Amino acid sequence: MVVSNSRLLGFAAFTGVACVTGSLYCQYKIREGLKKGDYYKKSLDILKQHNAAMQLLGPPIKQGNLDLGDTVNNMVDGYRAKLAVPVLGQKQKGKLFLWAEREKPGDSWNVQKLELSLENSEFDGRRLVVYKSENNEKN
């Protein structure tokens, strides 16, 4: 059976679009799952209550999409979470670095440390410590 080149090209194009769409949907669902985590919500609440961070960023604070390819800064397992959340305020943008832990799956997450890195800032690569738990000796 002979198949024309135009028919093969159409099939290849359809398959390519389906693969890209599926990949984007999977990334969207993963990001939404991370945003629903207690560690994520608690961290953003702490950031929004930090006066210096709010003055530097400028309210309101919005969060961007996590870079799922950044496996150095973005990792979550059943016991530890480490994320670099892009944040944007009226004045400038940056990243909120968060570390959280819990004893076992099902337990509540405890935010261990939050640091804010700002773009276009006089901080020049330094980070503002937004929160550090009292029992946090590792970070």
Rank of each mutant, 00 (worst) to 15 (best):
S4G: 15
N5S: 14
N5I: 14
A13V: 14
A13R: 15
A13I: 14
A13M: 12
F14Y: 11
F14M: 13
T15R: 06
G16P: 00
G16L: 14
G16S: 13
V17R: 05
C19G: 04
V20S: 04
V20L: 12
V20D: 00
T21N: 05
Y25T: 11
Q27A: 12
Y28A: 07
I30W: 05
R31S: 09
R31H: 08
E32S: 10
E32V: 09
L34Q: 06
L34I: 15
K35E: 13
K35W: 03
K36H: 08
G37L: 10
G37E: 13
Y39T: 03
K41I: 13
L44K: 01
I46K: 07
L47Y: 04
K48S: 11
A52L: 12
A53N: 00
A53H: 00
M54D: 01
P60I: 04
Q63K: 03
G64R: 02
G64T: 06
N65L: 09
N65Y: 04
L66K: 01
L66A: 03
L66N: 02
L66G: 00
L66C: 02
L66D: 01
G69D: 07
G69W: 08
D70Q: 00
T71R: 07
V72W: 00
V72Y: 04
N74Y: 02
V76T: 04
V76M: 03
D77N: 15
Y79I: 05
A81K: 00
A81R: 01
L83G: 00
A84D: 01
A84Q: 05
V87M: 07
V87T: 07
L88Y: 13
L88D: 08
L88F: 13
G89Q: 06
Q90K: 15
Q90F: 08
Q90G: 09
Q90H: 11
K91R: 10
K91Q: 09
K93Y: 10
G94T: 07
K95E: 07
L98M: 15
E101R: 10
E103S: 12
E103C: 01
E103M: 07
K104W: 06
P105C: 04
G106F: 09
S108H: 13
W109N: 06
N110G: 06
Q112P: 02
L114P: 02
L114W: 05
E115H: 05
E115A: 13
E115D: 15
L116N: 03
L118W: 07
E119T: 10
E119F: 13
N120D: 15
N120K: 14
E122R: 09
E122C: 02
F123T: 07
D124K: 13
D124Y: 11
G125H: 04
R126E: 13
V129F: 04
V129Y: 01
V130K: 03
E134W: 03
N135V: 13
N139P: 01
